[in-house]
Design a binder for these strands. Structure first.
Lengths: 213, 213
DNA sequence: TTGAGGTTGGAACTAATGTTTCAGGACAAG
DNA sequence: CTTGTCCTGAAACATTAGTTCCAACCTCAA
């Protein structure tokens, strides 16, 4: 990536600060004045570079039509939120991620930073009821965020539905021939091994959030 | 408070939507067009009322110098973030929450919704290293968010420093006369009971975040 | 009806703001 | 030194956008 020149960095910093203060972007002349640049054309020139290099987005011919694509901009980055659409407990089926609940969730949670935001709109969350997931180091009341999936690679933590046992569980999954091994996160617990046909993967676990206060 | 007329409400809604889409406020003529108002003066007139009634703020003579004071505007709500200032592991002292690290953290995390935001600036986080906290249902790599504290009530999850053992631990705390009982979150583990003088409380655990993807 | 207050329409005016042009400087490569 | 590239300055230009003015239009009550 193109390294910003000191002047460009200064402009970027100012734009940030300005938006933070005014709730709307600065004009070319605002930038010129703040950065003590002698001409608007210099600002124009550098804005053009910043846009070419992907630091900002501009809408041509639009006053203050300026947007910082920094990712750390407090504005514009809508806080992603994931709907908590039900509960998960051993022995009860996993709630379907249907649209009704998705639009009227019990509550919403904000996934932690660093989650792959591709398809972030598909994520959903379940609140754990009971201690049945304790071998996955998940407590009663924890919120588990899922990405919908029907397949998983070895080592993924998944929400699995054991068909015969009529039981939902959260474990790391390992394919072993005709069987799958479901390995508790807690190393002190023994894995369970079941025929592949008896397991239905419902989603991959993206994050676990425990709120204690 | 002055009730907004349908037209004013429509304008307000449009301004919201526009900012959401463009990251900068609409011009008078943008509003005019979107709300199918025949003249800019009507927009001007109604914006004036909206400002007088406190719905928006305007900077006169400034293009798009418009700010919705709604409180629910996605812009301008800075996402709180908590610095991850180090690691926690049994046998190593808890890192001091000093200013240097606070300003140049390893990384930052966003606390889950619902955390009491009073004193949110004081919160800090540590990443767990190793499996020593597994009895508190905390895995290697989990991020634990703390609120600084030197005292705790019965049942609080705290970061405790066992002076004699030279060991940090995360447990629920119960005062029992001259002793304190440190109760693992995992009910299958036994509590440990130590003299009150041997325990130093470093902070209350606010949340635990585990990222698996 | 009639008048007052609030609202709308249309147009013009002016200020703000993005854009362009062109000349010149700084600086490294040849 | 020359050349080319990148950057800067200054000014002018064109468009966008805030503002103003005034007439017309509602609505409601006296």
């Amino acid at each position: 990536m193109h390294k910003t020149s000191p002047r460009q960095q200064q402009m970027l910093d100012f734009i940030h600060a300005y938006i933070d203060e005014h709730a709307y972007p600065p004009s070319v002349r605002d930038i010129q004045q703040a950065c003590e640049i002698s001409s608007t054309s210099v600002v124009h020139y550098n804005l053009h570079i910043l846009q070419r290099e992907g630091f900002i987005h501009r809408d041509p011919e639009v006053s203050r039509g300026l947007e910082v694509l920094d990712g750390i901009t407090p504005s514009r980055t809508p806080m992603p939120s994931v709907p908590v659409i039900g509960y998960i407990a051993a022995g009860s089926p996993l709630p379907a991620a249907d649209e009704a609940l998705r639009h009227d969730p019990l509550e919403t949670v904000t996934p932690p930073d660093g989650i792959d935001t591709r398809g972030v709109g598909d994520l959903y969350a379940l609140r754990v009821r009971g201690l049945s997931m304790i071998d996955a180091l998940i407590d009663d009341g924890d919120v588990v965020i899922f990405r919908p999936a029907t397949e998983a690679r070895n080592g993924d933590m998944v929400a699995a539905w054991l068909i015969e046992e009529q039981e939902a569980t959260l474990k790391r999954i390992y394919h072993e021939g005709a069987n799958v091994r479901l390995q508790p996160a807690n190393s002190q617990m023994e894995p369970i091994i079941v025929p592949a046909g008896n397991v239905e993967i419902k989603g991959r676990v993206v994050a676990v959030i425990r709120r204690l206060e």
